[in-house]
């Protein structure tokens, strides 16, 4: 069963995975430099833990952002707005508690709800609503599951520590 899951997730990754490419020291088609990109990812991590999103949500948020950067020429000034909106979309897919992500737009980031809503439409349109992107978290879960089912003694040794 885990084997099928792994194959399915791989197929999903093949279908939907896209990453931005570097060209002339910037992400292709934009004026975003790698340090700026890194900075926004670190900031997104902070936001994600501030709103108590799961690691899965954060990972998916980063992947939504990556897909968008790969698909659309994005100006640096919009980067933060794209990033936080990606995280909100990931939360909509992943989190159970609806109240939590609605607060995101109001607290601590300087974007208005209207801006975020508009960005949301742009992202969804550009990504054709394909939001179930396979993330490293999915693979970690599968590998962990495979390992534990093959070597159950590992689970015991961990719980004894």
């Amino acid at each position: 069963r885990l084997g099928t899951l792994l194959l399915n997730t791989l197929a999903r990754e093949m279908r939907l995975w896209r990453a931005p490419v570097l060209k002339n020291g910037c992400i292709q088609g934009s004026d975003i430099s790698p340090p700026q990109y890194q900075e926004v990812i670190v900031w997104l991590r902070e936001m994600s833990s501030l709103f108590q999103f799961s690691s899965e949500t954060f990972a998916l948020g980063v992947y939504v952002l990556n897909s968008l950067l790969a698909a659309v020429k994005t100006q640096q000034k919009y980067l933060k707005c794209v990033a936080i909106t990606s995280l909100i979309l990931a939360a909509k897919i992943n989190e159970e508690d609806e109240a939590r992500y609605t607060n995101v737009s109001q607290s601590r980031c300087k974007f208005s709800t209207a801006e975020i809503l508009r960005m949301e439409r742009v992202i969804l349109n550009k990504l054709h609503w394909d939001l179930f992107i396979a993330t490293p978290m999915d693979f970690i879960h599968i590998f962990h599951g495979l390992l534990m089912s093959r070597r159950p003694q590992l689970m015991l040794s961990i719980s004894q520590k």
């Binding site: 909509k92 609503w129 939001l131």
Partner: peptide, 28 residues
């Protein structure tokens, strides 16, 4: 785009089978 609308559409995008409804397009 509420949480349920978002999930519904993203899920519909994943489904491909002759006996399952196909989403042709989304309008906002």
């Amino acid at each position: 785009i509420s949480m349920s609308a978002c999930r519904e559409i993203a899920l519909l995008r994943e489904l491909k089978h002759p006996n399952v409804i196909t989403l042709q397009k989304v309008f906002l």
